[in-house]
Nucleic acid binder design. Structure first.
Lengths: 214, 214
DNA sequence: CGAAAAACTCAACACGCGTTGAGAAACTTG
DNA sequence: CAAGTTTCTCAACGCGTGTTGAGTTTTTCG
């Protein structure tokens, strides 16, 4: 036991990186602020106040406002995986699965949706956010294009992704009344057939959504 | 001629409001800046420099940055009318007409597209722009809902508008490579059937787009 | 304990922003 | 010309921002 670290060249002494509760508090406050106020309107001072921490602490843990934003905005792996599985399944009900995945991702629990909201709100003013959103839409293509019909499968997947992001934006950021008022099932029932048509070219007369009856 | 202004209580003398060339120059510079840089990143100093004018002149003609932005961001009546006619026609080829109207509006000549771009870029950070975009999407409903099928025609029109705005955003602001590379006709051919399905519920096997053959 | 390292506090800097006011210059009338 | 009115110039104010550095406290180790 005594010679456990003996061989290490530099045994670091002193206070170990603490429990990290402060850093986590800053991260939580920043995620909420960036998601609801956007990148430009979010100030480091406000984040620090929300976390009950000095301004300078924020700069010590995350070196700049951009790095703090980058730490917050990363698309959670869990959400990413759900998108992939939605795209990978069989063609039948593909549109419905994809629409549900997008709506769920942006309306689910805060820990999953807030980073996506921050990305969406920051995409216009922050280069990193714009690149991330671009890659997010673009990356759907790789999963959407594999094994799908035409050579334009990538374009189709990108279009579907853009359209669904547009719907989420209108609903959650712009606040278009008709979309805000509509419940999720109604949206799925209406949008799923169109997305299905975008992704797999062929039209059909069967019902696309399980319980979509009027 | 001499008694032309005689009856007026206050005959205003002195220099007449000049040719207004300066005001117009400011307006043009502001429109371009707000469209390409967004509301937050556009500074009055930069607009003044673009127009070759002192900063204080901008504040004299337009009383504040918000009022300058409002003067720039109004949706041009010509574009608005084209949207309405696109929605009003017969159901046949409705999707194609609507898709073409949206794409043309944001990719046409600068004088028409720049205000729309400014509105889109400002919608996240500026309340006025958000309200304008909200009304823009919402107002399509009034024209889209009249005489259309179900009672959810308003929702369908709002969804179609949101989806098309999403495509334009991905293409012109986010810069998704696949969408940037695709030419307009390809986009119309791919998207029109889906929009058609959103607007008029019924599916069909016929080709929606005239020259959309593979 | 005593030293090292991290966590934290406090105060300030430099910068760019929107905005304002005073005054000179240019032009239009009587 | 002279008075009146507008356009333009110049300089500054106040504010909030991201960011920094010095100094203090607290914890962890030898």
């Amino acid at each position: 036991m005594t010679l456990q670290r003996e061989s290490l060249p530099k045994a670091r002494r002193g206070r170990r990186p603490g429990a990290g509760s402060t850093r986590q508090a800053v991260l939580d406050a920043a995620r909420a602020r960036f998601a609801s106020d956007g990148f430009g309107a979010t100030t480091i001072r406000r984040v620090a106040a929300d976390a009950g921490v000095d301004v300078s602490q924020v700069m010590q843990f995350f070196r700049s406002k951009d790095e703090l934003f980058a730490a917050v905005m990363s698309v959670p792996a869990s959400a990413l995986e759900r998108f992939n599985t939605a795209f990978e399944g069989p063609d039948e009900h593909l549109g419905e699965r994809v629409v549900r995945a997008y709506l769920a991702a942006w309306e689910g629990p805060a820990l999953d949706s807030e980073p996506l909201m921050a990305m969406l709100r920051g995409a216009i003013v922050n280069d990193h956010a714009r690149a991330q959103l671009r890659d997010f839409i673009q990356s759907r293509l790789l999963h959407g294009a594999s094994g799908r019909s035409g050579d334009d499968a990538a374009l189709r997947a990108g279009l579907a992704s853009s359209m669904l992001v547009g719907i989420v934006t209108s609903r959650r950021i712009i606040g278009v009344p008709v979309l805000v008022a509509a419940d999720t099932e109604k949206l799925v029932a209406t949008v799923a057939p169109a997305i299905q048509r975008i992704l797999v070219g062929a039209p059909s007369q069967t019902d696309w959504v399980k319980g979509a009856g009027a």
